[in-house]
């Protein structure tokens, strides 16, 4: 896992590469990572399993976390930005 600054530079972002993982592990690993983060911090999750691009945001909203964005990339991956509530 890596760290970077957000586009605005005001918040720190963690990067979580979950390429090669499938559900439910993509959601569980994202959830466990968010648990270690401070409120307001952002987590950028990369997945290459299409159902995870839908299930992670849906499940994160259910457990009360904020979904900032979901974007499909040209290389067949999805980038999901989550913010710790």
């Amino acid at each position: 896992m890596a760290n970077e600054r957000s586009a605005s530079g005001s918040t720190s972002r963690k990067l979580l590469d979950l390429r090669g993982e499938v559900c439910p592990y993509t959601f569980v690993k994202s959830k466990l990572t968010l648990e270690q983060m401070a409120p307001g911090e952002e987590l950028v999750v990369t997945v290459d399993y299409e159902p995870s691009s839908r299930n992670i945001p849906k499940s994160m909203r259910i457990i009360g976390e904020e979904v900032v964005s979901v974007a499909a990339k040209d290389d067949g991956t999805w980038e999901i930005v989550l913010r710790k509530a």
Binding site: P24, Y25, V28, K31, L32, E35, Q36, S59, I63, G64
Partner: peptide, 23 residues
């Protein structure tokens, strides 16, 4: 922290909102 094999083993309860890694 939980190991990768543990995350896989306990995933079905870790998906629950309040069932955290600490739990």
């Amino acid at each position: 922290p939980l190991r990768d094999d543990q995350i896989r083993r306990y995933a079905r309860q870790l998906v629950m909102r309040d069932f955290t890694g600490a739990a």
